[in-house]
Design a protein around this nucleic acid. Structure first.
Lengths: 337, 337
DNA sequence: CGGTAAATCGAAAACGTTTTCGATTTGTTT
DNA sequence: AAACAAATCGAAAACGTTTTCGATTTACCG
């Protein structure tokens, strides 16, 4: 590996001048500048990033912690982040928390000790306290949270309005004539589940439909199988239900599959609306009406904000935290009338 | 940020001793060892990884280049790599080539200049020459290729036996009684497409079925839409076809969707088998018979091999390249008789 | 107590870069 | 030719760690 020193010796000049020549300092003559650049590329010189990092105290690398990689929404987010980061010359280290609070803590420690320039995170479902997050902020490492956030933590956030989106989804069911609407809700912890539930409830009361807590089923692992299970349960408990708003597409697809198997006609006998707009939603039969969640844009936006905070920190500007709310969109397909 | 120096001053000893105490050298007394460790954790000392990298000439970081992140198979691979890497104390920088040769080249340059300890790569469809790859090998940076590989490049590889798997898939169609079997093949460049095509052809001739090149349709972007398009084309061109082996599940699902729309019964009128076993394959109707491609295991294995090569390089051992072939498995579902 | 061995410590160099600041050279003007 | 300004260069420190090797201290034994 060729170093500045070697180039300097080759040309009989000092390391300083070589460095400055390569970085375009104005106090080195055009002649030597040209000379240095030529021999540098001839020797295939590449700056030792370890040394640069040490000297400049930055690594041009950010960390990303995500609950699950094999997941349509999250992989879209990752793609958005990586693309945007690459444009700005940043690399992305990805870690997966597996929805575990303990892992999430360890991984944050890892990233901090690697001294990444910033951190992007979507919280695990299991995270209840936020000490590990406030620690990041105290260390003054820029951080922005997206999708699954902790409202109480003081940092920038990129989210969708889950409550509003859920409201619109439920309202859509009402608009197509549903009178008795069930909800398969997500676990108690992530804010999203709560907000979606609240949106559902609000839509009911705003349209003079009674809220019946026995129509709300609590999901645990949000799997395909759970969707099928609760669809079946619903047939036993409440034969009069004519619409379901389901917390996420995967579960909705499980439900559809079960209804298909049981010969229940969708949407004639029951309307179904999901959430997230996984690719899968468009290819099953009947195709699934759902709420589009802009993962790619969320990733892009999250990085952009993080980037600004990193730059501001370098300039010793005070960083003001932003909270961006991205638009969702109802995607109407065959599973609703 | 607290440094060794600060700990040393705090205790009135030398930086050397502090460093050695923390690293468990035997030439420092148990008393001072304990003292140093206590104050280190009290001050929340974390070694500056930039300095460590510079000194030890390694970053405990590897690079991963993948054609596409939002993709069930590849995201499974990523998951396998990250999990395994984390176990060994390595972090993973992910880049996406978007199936572009040019991007792939740039990204390899990026990773090399970041001085990652090793590189994992699955080639873009567009990569024809391998100069950028041999460059890595000349630099003596360990590299292992997986799934989409270049046979001619001298490095370790983790793959499946595409040809054998395709053979089995085609044979399955023959076993269920198909006499006239079409193939939607992938583009001309990645070796996988070629091998799958060859397996298909071999199976036909081994079972006394004539090979008819007009039954082979060349896919371009391997999308859902292409599947639908060629399914329709097939109905126009060859009404007598009773089975299709399709290069990848996504395209197969597009075809199924088109056949469903046209009222063609699957598998009664036409048998369909895909490749990869995307999650989606199990939830569409009819569910798709396919070949399971073990993404997660491939990721794990690829990292393990890379890890060994990194270690061997450190010990100046000569590294011997391995070629691992993982088992695939026929997953029989409703789309074949 | 003298002598040797073992235990314990620290000075210093090295990794490769960036940047400050002073020194030297060149050019320009009287 | 003197005087000054501008252009060009390089020495040296710094970033924080690791590790070699010599120095010092302690322990031990006759």
């Amino acid at each position: 590996m060729v170093t500045l020193k070697q180039i300097a010796e080759e040309l009989g000049i000092s390391v300083t001048t070589v460095s400055k020549a390569l970085k375009g300092y104005k106090d080195v003559s055009k002649k030597t500048k040209k000379l240095v650049k030529e021999t540098a590329s001839m020797l295939n010189y590449k700056p030792n990033s370890f040394a640069v990092n040490l000297r400049t105290k930055e690594s041009k690398t950010i960390g990303l912690i995500i609950p699950e990689i094999v997941h349509h929404f999250f992989s879209s987010v990752i793609k958005g982040i990586i693309e945007q980061a690459e444009k700005k010359g940043y690399l992305v280290i990805i870690l997966q928390s597996n929805e575990s609070y303990e892992l999430e803590k360890k991984q944050i420690d890892l990233l901090l000790s690697k001294r990444v320039d910033g951190i992007l995170i979507s919280l695990a479902n299991g995270t209840g306290d936020y000490k590990h997050l406030t620690e990041i902020i105290e260390q003054e490492t820029p951080i922005v949270m997206f999708d699954k956030i902790a409202k109480v933590v003081q940092c920038s956030k990129v989210i969708i309005d889950d409550r509003k989106a859920a409201y619109q989804a439920t309202k859509h069911l009402i608009d197509v004539g549903c009178k008795r609407i069930a909800h398969f809700r997500g676990p108690l912890l992530p804010q999203n589940s709560i907000d979606r539930f609240l949106g559902y409830k609000q839509a009911l009361t705003d349209h003079n439909l009674p809220y019946d807590s026995s129509l709300v089923y609590l999901l645990d692992d949000m799997s395909f199988e759970e969707g099928a299970f609760f669809a079946n349960q619903l047939l036993i408990d409440h034969k009069d239900v004519d619409g379901i708003f389901i917390n996420t597409d995967l579960v909705a697809i499980g439900a559809i599959s079960e209804f298909n198997k049981k010969g229940i006609k969708i949407p004639e006998e029951i309307n179904i609306i999901g959430f997230s707009n996984w690719f899968m939603a468009s290819v099953i039969s009947p195709s699934l009406t759902t709420v589009n969640q802009p993962g790619f844009e969320m990733g892009k936006k999250a990085f952009k904000i993080l980037y600004k905070e990193i730059k501001d920190k370098k300039k010793n500007k005070t960083i003001s935290h932003k909270e961006i709310v991205l638009d969702t969109e109802l995607v109407i397909r065959e599973s609703t009338n």
